[in-house]
């Protein structure tokens, strides 16, 4: 037990006196945690990160270039925004590349469970990278965000594959236009 009363009797009154050298602003817990996450980032060879400002570790981009599956040969950019409540809250992740994908809509919203309802503070940036990479290898038509794409993947895989290739190479799928995103 701490005996505050007796301890503080001896304590001199330091009211309002910030001592010299004690005024350096402390890094937040979120900052400490993201620094650790990034220093230990172990990217698969299909992924890469880009930091527009190397001093700002809270905002960066992840580039995924799948080497197998429907999306091989494509280059997809995701933006990560890590908030002050990390890791209590997950980073905000958006897909900046227009992509024909059952779990990514045309506004760049990504339906990945660990980005929302299944996020836990023990997860890291690395977990999200693997989650996103998995979306390209195994698109999941059960949880659709782009319903058209999901229905097609379930009903006609060949047609879906053709449409993915058309979208990646630049072109229309239905009424949606996709910019070229091949490497």
């Amino acid at each position: 037990m701490i005996k505050l009363f007796s301890l503080k009797q001896q304590k001199k009154d330091e009211e309002g006196s910030a001592r010299a050298g004690g005024s350096q602003k402390k890094a937040s817990a979120a900052q400490l945690r993201i620094t650790k996450d990034l220093n230990e980032l172990n990217l698969p060879k299909t992924c890469n990160t880009e930091f527009p400002d190397p001093d700002d570790l809270l905002n960066f981009k992840l580039i995924i270039c799948p080497d197998e599956g429907f999306y091989r040969g494509g280059r997809f950019i995701f933006s990560f925004k890590v908030g002050p409540n990390y890791p209590h809250e997950p980073p905000k992740v958006k897909c900046e590349t227009a992509v024909y994908h059952p779990n990514i809509d045309l506004e760049g919203n990504v339906c990945l469970n660990i980005l929302r309802e299944d996020w836990k503070p023990v997860l890291t940036v690395n977990s999200i990278v693997y989650g996103l990479q998995y979306l390209f290898l195994e698109p999941n038509p059960e949880d659709p965000l782009n319903k058209e794409a999901a229905d097609e993947l379930q009903s006609n895989r060949r047609l879906f594959e053709q449409h993915v290739q058309r979208a990646n190479a630049r072109g229309y799928v239905g009424s949606s236009y996709f910019e070229r995103c091949l490497k």
Partner: peptide, 27 residues
């Protein structure tokens, strides 16, 4: 492979981090 950062004048500053290629090149 230590990643080293600091806070100067209230701003975060990355001094050196080898694990991330783009940051390594610029620091």
């Amino acid at each position: 492979s230590p990643g080293i950062t600091t806070v100067i004048n209230g701003r975060n500053k990355t001094l050196y981090m080898s694990s991330i290629k783009s940051i390594e090149e610029r620091t």
